[in-house]
Design a protein around this nucleic acid. Structure first.
Length: 286
DNA sequence: AATGAAGGCAACCGCGAACTT
DNA sequence: GAAGTTCGCGGTTGCCTTCAT
């Protein structure tokens, strides 16, 4: 019972254990003991964040800094998505780097790290943006959790664009409902919500707009036909070209299993994210 | 040299999603 | 559809190091 491991059908054995497998397990335990007294979750984290051979380590470059800032302005605290576009960097690493370096850097530039707008403008945002800034905001949080007075300004203009998404709470709800209904509407909002949080015709729902549409070659908001698309996406087999904010990023989707050396199948359904992006990517020419 | 504050980062925690039985 | 389990994400914590006094 339970969720199957990633790519089980591609390259892991199932069914009865063979004598050879038994012997290899015995040999391994003889050599290394019964275990590390670590749960799988902890091992996974250690591997992903520290032991993976393709990790870059070392300081972030200025280019990486700027890319992270741009991606954060588009995606918010979607660290895994951001990390997917920085080869060799982990979501945890980027998250820590953001909190310790980039936030300060932006503040010193007079830019609000949450809104990516000038600091003196953020106080004028209307109250409907003043929701908690996490997807888990619906649940009451203990007092010790992060910045209780932080505001969600993601509805505010970002680098000249305006997000159609009123809040993550709505966004996630909409996403779930859209998936369940097979409805790929761009805003995912109900009529009431659309009324309440108008997109000004320039809206861009980041969550849904960047998802990989099966046959689309260009993504833009459905409810803002005249707005310039912030992000274009070209999809050909497993190759994805992303163009946004004047930058081009080309990545070939691969799953973790590929990174681990199981190159027989480069992508598996378990490694595909629900929003259409792949969790693991490698540069085309690697 | 001792001490406390601040910074940096790896690891943990809780939750929702995904999946199987 | 319910229950049980694993996976993966984002937020948070806590330890270690560095800096300031």
């Amino acid at each position: 019972m339970g969720r199957s491991p990633c790519c089980e059908k591609a390259h892991t054995n199932k069914g009865a254990w063979t004598k050879e497998e038994d012997q290899r397990l015995i040999d391994y335990i003889r050599a290394h003991g019964e275990g590390l007294l670590r749960c799988g979750k902890s091992c996974r984290l250690r591997w992903i964040n520290y032991l993976r051979p393709d990790l870059k380590r070392g300081n972030f470059t200025e280019e990486e800094d700027e890319l992270i800032i741009k991606l954060h302005s588009l995606l918010g605290n979607k660290w895994s998505l951001i990390a997917g576009r920085l080869p060799g960097r982990t979501d945890n690493e980027i998250k820590n780097y953001w909190n310790t370096h980039i936030k300060r850097k932006l503040i010193s530039r007079g830019i609000d790290p949450q809104t990516h707008r000038p600091l003196n403008e953020t106080t004028t945002i209307t109250t409907h943006n003043m929701t908690n800034n996490t997807a888990k905001s619906t649940a009451p949080k203990p007092a010790a959790t992060s910045a209780p007075n932080e505001l969600d300004f993601r509805n505010a203009p970002i680098n000249g664009f305006i997000s159609a998404t009123p809040s993550l709470e709505f966004k996630y709800k909409a996403k779930t409902e859209s998936l369940e209904e097979g409805n790929c509407s761009s805003s995912g909002m109900t009529t009431d919500e659309e009324h309440k949080y108008p997109s000004n015709g320039q809206g861009l729902n980041l969550e849904l707009s960047i998802g990989i549409a099966n046959d689309s070659t260009q993504l833009s908001t459905a409810n803002s036909a005249d707005s310039k698309p912030l992000l274009h996406h070209h999809h050909n087999h497993n190759t994805h070209n992303f163009h946004f904010l004047g930058q081009t990023m080309v990545a070939k989707a691969v799953c973790l299993c590929w990174q681990l050396g199981f190159q027989g199948s480069e992508i598996c359904r378990n490694c595909q994210n629900t929003n259409g992006f792949y969790r693991y990517c490698r540069p085309l020419d690697s």
